[in-house]
């Protein structure tokens, strides 16, 4: 599905990477531990997290991820947003919980990025 559709589905506010919204993604990974993301997530997935620091963006960059969804209305700092913008990563904020965000995306057929 397109990143734009994820934003619509989660009623999310897009804060960076608006020109990347038509990028197609196939899978997603939910986690607050970046070490686990590095260990278990596959390339180019969507990262759904409640953690707010620049390492979230750098972790996404290491895995060539195109999109980060911050849950529960957690607003990333301008530093996080500009780091994402500079690296063509879409950052969005949803008011939904991690459980509901993941559930809605799973329902659309998006795959688990933890499965090789």
């Amino acid at each position: 599905m397109k990143i734009r559709e994820i934003a619509e589905l989660l009623h999310a506010e897009v804060l960076s990477g608006k020109e990347m919204l038509d990028t197609e993604v196939q899978n997603a990974f939910c986690c607050d531990m970046m070490s686990d993301v590095l260990a278990f997530a596959t390339n180019q997935s969507v990262l759904i997290t409640g953690l707010l620091n620049p390492q979230v963006v750098r972790t996404a960059m290491m895995l060539d991820m195109h999109c980060i969804v911050f849950i529960q209305g957690k607003e990333p700092t301008p530093e996080i947003v500009s780091l994402a913008e500079a690296n063509d990563i879409v950052v969005m904020v949803t008011q939904e919980s991690m459980f509901c965000s993941a559930g809605r995306l799973y329902d659309t057929g998006l795959l688990d990025a933890g499965e090789e």
Binding site: M34, S35, D36, A39, L51, Q55, V56
Partner: peptide, 15 residues
Amino acid sequence: NMGFGAGMGLPNMKR
């Protein structure tokens, strides 16, 4: 709290 220290660092480097 910063999202690290899960004890996966060295194992990941090896992996």
